[in-house]
Simulated assay, not measured.
Amino acid sequence: MSTVSESRTKEDDDVSSGPSLSYELVNTADDQSESAVETEPSTVSAGNGKIYLDAPEKVSISFGIMPSDGRSWVGKMDVKCDDVPQMMREGFYWSVENVIKEEGVVDNYTSPAYSSSNKPKPPCRATRRWILQDMQRPRRWIAYLEVHALTLDIVSNIRLDSWHPNMVVSCSAWGHLDNLVYQFEARAPEDGFNTIYDDLMLRGWWPWPRLRPRTQVFVRRNGGRLQRVDVKELTAEMSD
């Protein structure tokens, strides 16, 4: 079974690189907020993610993100930062306020979809991308968030203000020599580790171990069947 511990590429120009996720997609659009967010007109030109590509840091944290239905779309956030331990000690936080609105883009094209079965994979026909950055100065991190879905209407209606940390289903972090220092995947929580701070309870969007109880329900494979598992059960299994 593929996990987030797969080797990443060292070419930061390939922003779509990183650990692959394997989940099945269907054409649903749950978990989308219908609320509109008022924004002030901008005089900045559309950058299409250039500010992220120009950032000199390597990708050092990668999050796999899914809606609670686990099926309408799949997302991945790659974070460039120089100090992963600092992000662990202080917590990794972000919200819609961190989005650089002028850097967003949507691609409408056919690409392989993520699938958890051996059936033919339906194509992902749309990808939406956002660039986010730390609001503290000097900036501690900058991130590239992308979501893949079956149809353009799904990605065009995604609103990040409805997202929450319980949507993170996997996470990996690397040190300066590109070796794994942190790993968690909801489907295999027993394989989670933090080589820097061991059992330190992490805050913000770090998925494990968490300071506050997780209530999200994940789907994992049990033999040849998919099984819905409450995270409280996963936490109990990790403590055994």
Score class of each variant (00 low, 15 high):
W205I: 03
P19M: 04
T110V: 08
A29F: 05
S116Y: 04
W94H: 00
K58A: 12
K232W: 14
Q216T: 03
I51K: 11
P120F: 04
Q136W: 05
R89H: 10
V79Y: 05
G18L: 01
Q183I: 07
S5V: 03
A29W: 08
D14R: 14
R159T: 08
D199W: 07
P165Y: 07
T43Y: 11
P189L: 14
A126I: 08
G192C: 14
A126L: 04
V147I: 15
F63K: 07
D69E: 09
W130D: 10
S68T: 03
Q136A: 13
R125V: 05
L226K: 14
G18A: 09
E11S: 14
M66T: 13
L202D: 08
L25S: 13
V155D: 12
P213E: 09
E97W: 00
T151E: 06
M77P: 07
D191V: 02
P120R: 02
H176Y: 05
K76E: 08
E103H: 03
Y52I: 07
D198V: 00
P112I: 02
P112G: 08
T235C: 08
D82N: 15
L200M: 15
P122K: 07
Y23C: 00
N222P: 01
P189K: 14
N222R: 02
S62N: 06
V147E: 01
N98Y: 00
L211Y: 05
L202G: 10
M66V: 13
R71M: 12
Y93P: 03
A236M: 06
W208D: 01
V106I: 15
L145V: 01
R225K: 01
W208T: 05
I100A: 11
S35Q: 14
N108L: 11
M167T: 02
M1R: 12
K10W: 01
D78T: 11
A149N: 04
P209N: 09
L234Q: 01
I51F: 02
E237Q: 03
S95I: 09
M66L: 15
H148D: 06
P122V: 09
H164S: 02
I131Y: 05
E146K: 12
E24A: 08
R129I: 03
V84F: 00
E233A: 12
I65C: 10
L180W: 03
L150N: 07
D107L: 11
M66G: 06
A55N: 10
R125H: 12
P138W: 15
S7F: 02
L132F: 02
L150Q: 12
M66S: 12
D78V: 05
W141Y: 06
T110P: 01
A46M: 07
V4N: 11
A149S: 04
L160Y: 12
V229K: 10
